[in-house]
Amino acid sequence: KKKYVIKVYFEDTGKEVEIEAESKEEALEAAKRLAEELGLKIKKVEIYP
C-alpha cells in the first residue's frame, strides 16, 4: 500500500514537520489539526508519493 510523506512548513517559526499518511486528504487533515494545536499558520505543504 502506498504511503504519502507530507512536509509541512509553518510561518514565523521556520519549523517543518513530516507526516506520513495513507492519502493526501488524510495528510492534509493531519497538517491542519497540527497547525491548530500549535496555534501556527501553514506556510507551505509539500507532498511526496
Rank of each mutant, 00 (worst) to 15 (best):
V8C: 02
E22S: 05
K32L: 10
I42D: 01
K7R: 15
A30R: 11
E11H: 14
V17H: 14
E26I: 07
F10E: 01
K3M: 15
E37M: 05
K32G: 07
K41C: 15
V17P: 02
A30V: 15
V45H: 03
A27L: 09
K41I: 10
P49L: 14
K1T: 15
I47W: 15
K41T: 12
K43L: 10
K44Y: 12
K44L: 06
I6A: 08
T13A: 13
Y9F: 09
E26Y: 06
K41M: 08
K24W: 11
S23G: 04
E25P: 08
A21F: 04
T13S: 15
V17N: 03
K1C: 15
V8Q: 00
K3F: 11
G14D: 09
R33V: 09
K32V: 09
E37L: 07
T13Y: 11
L28E: 06
K32F: 15
G39W: 01
E29K: 09
F10C: 01
E26S: 15
I42K: 00
E20V: 12
K7E: 01
E18R: 04
A30Y: 11
K3V: 04
K2Q: 15
E29D: 10
E26F: 13
V17C: 11
E20Y: 13
S23I: 03
F10M: 02
A21H: 07
I42H: 00
E26D: 06
R33E: 04
A35H: 01
I42P: 01
K44D: 05
Y48C: 14
G39T: 02
Y9G: 02
K7D: 00
A35Y: 02
K15C: 01
Y9Q: 09
R33F: 04
I47V: 14
E37Q: 13
A30S: 10
K43T: 13
K24P: 08
I42Y: 02
A31K: 00
K2I: 12
K1V: 12
Y9H: 07
I6K: 00
R33H: 11
A27D: 00
S23T: 14
I19F: 10
K7Q: 03
E11R: 04
I6L: 05
I42G: 00
E26H: 11
V45L: 06
K2W: 15
T13P: 15
E20C: 05
K41S: 14
L34N: 02
E22R: 05
I6P: 00
K1R: 11
E36I: 10
E29T: 14
A30W: 15
L34A: 08
V17R: 09
K15V: 15
Y4H: 04
V8N: 00
K43I: 14
L28F: 11
L28W: 14
T13F: 09
E16G: 08
I42A: 01
G39E: 06
L28K: 06
Y9L: 06
P49G: 05
Y4E: 01
A30Q: 08
E11W: 12
L28G: 04
K44Q: 13
Y48V: 13
E46P: 00
K41A: 15
E37P: 01
L28M: 11
A21G: 13
A31V: 13
S23A: 03
E16C: 03
V8L: 10
Y4D: 01
V45E: 01
K43M: 12
K24F: 06
F10V: 01
Y48P: 03
K24A: 14
V45S: 02
Y4Q: 03
E16N: 12
I19G: 02
Y48L: 11
E29W: 12
T13N: 15
K24I: 13
K3H: 13
E36R: 14
G39A: 03
E36Y: 15
E18C: 15
I19A: 04
A21C: 08
E46D: 07
G14T: 13
G14A: 09
E16R: 06
P49V: 04
K3A: 09
K32N: 11
K41F: 12
A35K: 01
E29Y: 15
D12C: 13
A27S: 04
E36V: 14
K7M: 04
V45Y: 10
I19N: 01
P49K: 05
I19D: 01
E11G: 04
T13H: 06
E36M: 08
A30I: 14
E29C: 14
A21Q: 03
V5T: 08
L40E: 07
K44P: 01
Y48H: 11
V5H: 08
K15T: 15
K32Q: 09
K2C: 15
I19R: 02
G39S: 04
L28H: 14
L40H: 10
A31I: 04
E26C: 09
Y48Q: 10
A30C: 10
L40P: 01
G14F: 14
E20K: 11
L38G: 02
P49I: 13
K43W: 12
E46M: 05
E20P: 09
Y48S: 05
A30D: 06
E20H: 11
E46V: 14
I42E: 00
E36L: 13
E16F: 08
V45M: 08
A35T: 02
A27P: 01
K2D: 13
Y9T: 10
I6T: 03
G14I: 15
I19C: 04
E36P: 01
G14V: 14
K15N: 11
R33G: 12
K44N: 13
F10G: 01
